[in-house]
């Protein structure tokens, strides 16, 4: 009897811990949506900010973030997929492969602010790009590279070995086998990884703080050597650096909500893509 009671108590305790986390997440989302939604309208999204961001919209920050994530993925995707192809299709168990794997794991653990320092030292100063879309995108690309490599490699490995053997036995070269009979079936997983990478790049502040982000710049960039505003940095500025933070609170909530929608939308997109391709290719 008492035995059964302890059993139940412990299990309720475990359940309580889990749902406590769920409730906290739910509350955070609710709070931001509840206060942010009234601010969201067409003008907020498409107008330039005025008076140091105290009025007006967040259009250049949205555009800046889109430029940054586009630049990031253009740079990171080829290298990420290329690395994944090497690791899953070509790599033999040797020191080079081990070093590559160690580098990827290490890279994944580098704090985002250290990426910022690195980007500042190498791209902004040494290559003399200045704080720019280019410097920021390359820095973010270095940061999301491990995500893209790991998910793409998983996707490639999920394609059965028999597809490769089947192709090779018909007299294809190794690359022909990969291109025609492996890559097409791992496409879904690779796209999923790319979306996850973009989502991470979109939400990061620390790496762009030192390499690209502009405090207040109410115009659109003309080239990849221009600075831009970006949503996460804009939120940081509004929330902490603005002389009258409480007055611009609605704008902060609005910006936070837009950022949240962008990032969570991308995660959701990744989940949907994954399940779509899982249904399409079943073997």
């Amino acid at each position: 009897m008492t035995h059964n009671l302890t059993e139940k108590l412990v299990i309720s305790g475990l359940r309580f811990a889990t749902y406590a986390i769920v409730i906290v997440i739910g509350y955070i989302l609710f709070d931001i949506i509840w206060h942010g939604l009234p601010v969201l309208d067409w003008r907020f999204l498409t107008e330039m900010p005025r008076r140091g961001g105290a009025e007006g919209g967040i259009f250049p920050a949205i555009v800046g973030t889109i430029y940054l994530i586009a630049g990031t993925i253009i740079i990171a995707l080829p290298f990420g997929v290329g690395s994944a192809i090497y690791l899953s299709e070509y790599a033999s168990r040797n020191r080079l492969t081990e070093t590559i794997r160690l580098a990827i794991i290490t890279l994944a653990g580098v704090p985002s602010i250290v990426f910022g320092l690195f980007g500042l030292g190498l791209f902004v100063l040494y290559f003399n790009f200045g704080p720019s879309i280019l410097a920021g995108s390359i820095t973010l690309a270095c940061m999301v590279l491990p995500t893209i490599i790991v998910t793409s490699e998983e996707a490639l490995r999920a394609v059965p070995k028999s597809f490769r053997e089947g192709s090779l036995a018909l007299g294809t070269t190794k690359w022909q086998a990969i291109r025609t009979n492996v890559l097409p079936y791992s496409f879904g997983g690779i796209i999923t990884g790319a979306i996850l990478g973009i989502g991470r790049a979109a939400g990061e502040t620390a790496p762009i703080l030192l390499t690209v982000a502009a405090f207040f710049l109410p115009r659109l960039p003309k080239s990849i050597f221009d600075q831009v505003m970006a949503l996460p940095y804009h939120l940081y500025i509004l929330a902490t650096q603005h002389p009258d933070t409480s007055k611009v609170l609605p704008l902060q909530y609005g910006t936070a909500l837009v950022l949240l929608i962008l990032v969570l939308g991308l995660s959701l997109g990744a989940i949907i893509t994954r399940s779509h391709f899982r249904r399409k290719y079943r073997w």
Partner: peptide, 19 residues
């Protein structure tokens, strides 16, 4: 190897049709 494998075809234990 390509020429060789064209000349010497192979059928596997578990059928492996491509999707």
């Amino acid at each position: 190897i390509v020429t060789l494998r064209k000349k010497v075809g192979m059928v596997f234990q578990k059928s492996n049709p491509f999707p």
